[in-house]
Amino acid sequence: MTTAVIQAVLLALSMAALYAAVAAGLTLTVGVTRIINFAHGEFVMLGAFLTYWLYTRFGLSPWFGMAASGVALAILSAAVYRGFLARVLKQDEHNQLLATLGLSILILNLAIIAWSPDPRVMQAPPLLPTLNLGGVTVPGNNIAVALVGLILFVAMYAIRNYTRYGTQMRFASDDPTLAAHAGINVDRVFELSFVIGGAAAGVSGGLVALVLYVQPTIGVDLVIRAFAIIALGGLGNIPGALIGSAILALTEGLTSTFVPQGGSWGFGIAFVILLLVLVVRPSGLFGKQAHP
């Protein structure tokens, strides 16, 4: 029984790292530009497909696939920002919301038309050896996901807090007009944060291909979780998002494993927790309570 619990906890934690990676890119973008980017999930999905195709068609390692997906989605994000989002940025928030939601639905449906809604499994050899600790086994791919997810997460945190561009991102989100008076090209800074968030989505997509089904709707499932995690952790609060990911993944994972037929409602329980948290603390567990 205890081994089963430990096993389930470890697997849930690797999923937590994946969720955290998806949420970290999103929280960087949303925290800086205040654009609620629904299409972030589709960026993750595209990264998953790219990693999958690169492996199945060309035999390229998923390590390479992750990196390539990061680059590809960074480029796509720049194009989306310049061609599309920069134009709606000055409009009302609900217009931005509809714009990114529309983009999300568009990419999702194009993916369904092009690749069919069928789930695929990338049967690549595990990236890392299986971890065996006295009866508890953790597949190597889950370890890879946990490692890369955490690295991605820490990278987003470090960029925001310890680089000159990170300072400019925080200035631009704090007070865009004042940031411009300080000599910051706010539009470029927004674009940069969007591109970095897109790159993180691409790499997360590679992680998805390692441990989940590759299918067009995977982005929707993940982006909903990512928004839940951001809400739990507090907007723009990157460490808060890490703890939010763990709460969500553990609840989900343990419910699926130990509650009879829990697999179908683990996700639901996680959201009941989210609703309860939001009722008690509307700005999340670690959010500042009154954001200007």
Binding site: L178, A179, H181
Partner: peptide, 10 residues
């Protein structure tokens, strides 16, 4: 600008 504006979260 007026109002002693600063980047409050920094």
């Amino acid at each position: 600008p007026d109002g002693a504006r600063c980047f409050g979260t920094a």
